[in-house]
Structure formats: structure tokens, C-alpha cells
Write a protein that binds this DNA or RNA. Structure first.
Lengths: 201, 201
DNA sequence: AACTCGCGAATGAACGTTCGTTTGCAAAGA
DNA sequence: TCTTTGCAAACGAACGTTCATTCGCGAGTT
């Protein structure tokens, strides 16, 4: 009798994140979630407090995760462009590996109730401002081409939003392949320059 | 006494598109919609057939719109890179001007019922394949830098997804400004090249 | 001028269903 | 024994939608 079973609460949280991603928070019923974890809807409440609490937990955990990623990158002693690259790589990997991340970060946080909605927005704004700060440093240092950091920021963020519902491990392309391809596109753009180099970021 | 009042059915459709964008299809109730147009929920049904019919109409109209845009661009006698540029410009303008476009194109189409869901997916796939065809031509012609057209395609599409809930006309940046900035980023990338040119796409 | 007929548009009440959640109770584990 | 976990049943609320009715108005008839 191994005691390897993962805590049921965690199982519920992960199933919820998947459903929220696939159908959206509002279109996911507690009975859907119960079926996904192999219980009756009423039994869920032995482990969780409410549907919205699930969303709160998912959103909060990921907001904290992104902020801690930011903290690590800020502390690195590398050129600014390399910091941007690091952040983008972390975004890509998170989107590929962690189902819950994009669920909350992109779409479903708007269904949060009111104290939590404002809290989440604040944390998100904080993250964005620190990202913009880095971009601005890069522009001043002549490492990054952009007049409007905010436009660049949102374009970068959004450009990864297809990953979470497109990428699946068994695919033709491996995760590192996709990562390189995206970075190549974001850093060097669509247009071929006069000399035809295209490899390596 | 001007006879300028717009047909009520159109008013309902537009209000629905805004609500679907802001709250999502599932989280938007017919009573929400009724309040938005100044009616009782029951009165809506004098003008429309069902909630889902609203979504169907919005999604279909926009799928057709994007396909007709594609047709026009395909017929142009210009370099491939310029075709990509045209398509991106059209995407950007549509996202900025037309509320309903992104609503359906990005997110809410998944709530369509079954005959319509497959129809929409087919049209979307058609559009994507034709876009990828153009990208591939560009790669062969040496005008476009990319190994994986599909990765590029989704990155390009997604990169515009912030526009629809960010851009509002009274903003610091005008629509053409934003358009140029995004195109500049997508075509030439983040990284500054050795010589510092940054203007004009 | 009065009457009425048809009709589009709006309404409040109600329908059946599904929602998130609570309750009472039984079985299992400590 | 006490706590945890599960389930069936039930709860009130909200959902999309239907229904019978009413109101206002232009056309047709006297």
C-alpha cells in the first residue's frame, strides 16, 4: 500500500484549471468538475470552499509565480536585452508546461469577485510596470528597438497566447524548437535582412 | 423629425458583441443584454431567435469578413512580404475598429453549437492555410525569415489580441501610430541592428 | 369623423432546467 | 470514539425561453 496518492485537493485544483482553460470559468459547472475528478458535485465541498475560491487560488498562485520570476531576472547581472530574453523564455516555458498559468493570466481572472479582482489587477500592473521598466532601459541602452514600451509589452505577452491551447508534447515540434522559433521571430522579426542569417538567438 | 433611428436588431447585435467581449458569452445573460438595449429580456425575442443565434451571426459575419480580406490580398500583384504586411494591417485595423471581430475570432466561437462550430472551424482553418501558404512563398522567395510558418502564424495572430481590450480612441497614441509600432516590431524585431535605423515599415 | 382590423413591439408571469451550494446520513479510517 | 470522505436529495437563485396579453399606430372601411 504505497502512500503515493496525491492530495485530492490538488487534483481538484488541477482539473479545475484544465476545465477553466477549455470551456471558460462561467461555462464550467461544478458537476463538470466533479465528473472530471470522479466524484459527485456535493463531495467536492469536502475539499474546497467554493467555485470562486478555486479561481482565486489559481490566479493568486500564478500572479505570485510571475512576480517571483521577475524578481530573479531583475537581480541578474546581464545586459538588458538578455533580461528580456530570459523573461520571454520563462513566459514560453510556463505557457507550455503549466496549464493553469495562462488560464488565469490571460482570460479568466476577470471573473474574480471584488476584493480579489482588484488585488490581482494590482499585481498584474506591478508586473507590467517592471517589465516596461526593463524595456525602457533597453531602449535607452540602444539594445532594443521600440518607441512605445507599452505597445511592445502587450504585443509580446499576447504573442504567446496561442501556445497554451496549441502545444502538446507529442507534436512535430519539440518545446525547445518552438521556444527558439518564437524568440527568433520576436527578436529579429519577419523581414530578412540583406545578408541571410537566420540561426540562433 | 429625422428617421435616423437604426434598426433595433442591429442595435441588439452590437450590444451583444460588446457584452460577449467584456464578460464572455457564458457569463452574459439575456437580462444583461436586455438592460443594455433598454428592454425586458422577453422583448428581445421579438427581434432575435436565441442567444446562440446571436453568437452564430457574429461569428459567421466575421469569418466571412476575414476570408474576403484574404481574397483581396491574394489577388494583389505585389511582393509576398507586402502581402503579409497588408494582412497584418487589416488585422490590426479590424481589431481596433470592430468590436465584434475579436470577440468571435479569438475566444467565444468555442461556445457555438455543433453544426455551426464545425463550420466555423473549417472557415478558420481555410483562412489559416491560405495565410500559411503566403508565408511559405515568402520564405522560399527569401523575403521572410522563418522555419515554421505555423508557429509564425499563430504568433502573429496572437500578438494582436491585446488591442481589442486596450485600444480606445481617446488614447495617447493614435490608431495609425499603434499600427506602425506593431508592424515595426513584427517585421524588424526587438533587437537593434548595428546601424540604428528604426523608422518606416 | 368614427370604427376596427391587423400588426409590430413591449411586458410581467411563468415554464422547465441548470446553477452553486447545503444538509443529513452512512461507511471507512484513525 | 471522533474525524474524514462520500453520496443522494434538496435548496433557492438564476438561467434561456415561451406565453397570453396589451399598447400604439397606420390602413381600410363606412
Amino acid at each position: 500500500m504505497e502512500k503515493v496518492e496525491k492530495p485530492k485537493r490538488q487534483h481538484i485544483l488541477e482539473s479545475a484549471a484544465i476545465l477553466f482553460r477549455d470551456k471558460g470559468y462561467s461555462a464550467t459547472s461544478m458537476r463538470d468538475l466533479a465528473r472530471a475528478v470522479g466524484l459527485q458535485a456535493s463531495s467536492l465541498y469536502n475539499h474546497i470552499e467554493s467555485k470562486e475560491k478555486l479561481l482565486q487560488e489559481i490566479c493568486l498562485a500564478n500572479a505570485l509565480k510571475f512576480l517571483s520570476m521577475m524578481e530573479k531576472v531583475e537581480a541578474m547581472d546581464i545586459p538588458v536585452a538578455a533580461k528580456v530574453e530570459q523573461l520571454l523564455r520563462l513566459h514560453i516555458r510556463t505557457a507550455i508546461q503549466d496549464v493553469t498559468s495562462v488560464t488565469s493570466f490571460n482570460d479568466e481572472w476577470r471573473h474574480l469577485g471584488e476584493p480579489y479582482l482588484s488585488d490581482f489587477k494590482d499585481m498584474r500592473r506591478d508586473y507590467e510596470q517592471r517589465f516596461i521598466h526593463i524595456l525602457r532601459q533597453g531602449i535607452e541602452a540602444g539594445e532594443i528597438r521600440a518607441q512605445e514600451p507599452q505597445v511592445v509589452l502587450y504585443t509580446l505577452f499576447s504573442s504567446l497566447r496561442w501556445l497554451y491551447d496549441w502545444f502538446q508534447p507529442g507534436r512535430r515540434l519539440s518545446a525547445p524548437d518552438v521556444e527558439e522559433e518564437i524568440l527568433n521571430l520576436l527578436f529579429y522579426g519577419l523581414r530578412c535582412s540583406s545578408e541571410l542569417d537566420s540561426e540562433s538567438v
